[in-house]
């Protein structure tokens, strides 16, 4: 696991998200109304909608394209939809958000 600084906590809007470009593709950094942060692949398992632009509430993000709901802890779509999106670890140090990415082979 390699850790990368992303920016300050207050750069991610409460109840919404931002996206980051990484070697692992676009990742959505999402923040719920209570200030909890989550990171998932920025592609809805349904039709690839950018989850960084969806509503975040509790542990759920609502995809902006067709309103699929994704559980942010497991990455699983909520029933009746089926699908799953990769989750990534985040940590904060002071005001800084850090993203954990698996170390690349090369």
């Amino acid at each position: 696991m390699e850790w990368f600084p992303l920016g300050r906590i207050d750069e991610v809007p409460l109840g919404g998200g931002r996206y980051v470009e990484t070697p692992a593709g676009q990742i959505a950094v999402l923040c719920n109304e209570a200030g909890e942060l989550f990171a998932v692949h920025n592609r809805c398992p349904h039709r690839g909608g950018p989850l960084s632009e969806g509503f975040v509430s509790g542990k759920t993000v609502f995809c902006p394209l067709h309103n699929w709901q994704i559980d942010l802890e497991s990455g699983q779509a909520l029933p009746p939809d089926q699908g799953c999106v990769k989750t990534f670890p985040l940590k904060t140090e002071g005001e800084e958000i850090w993203l954990g990415l698996p170390e690349t082979q090369s």
Binding site: F4, Y19, V20, E21, Q26
Partner: peptide
């Protein structure tokens, strides 16, 4: 409008 990514991470 948060047009740009929060960050570009390069390996």
């Amino acid at each position: 409008i948060h047009a740009a990514p929060l960050r570009r991470v390069s390996a």
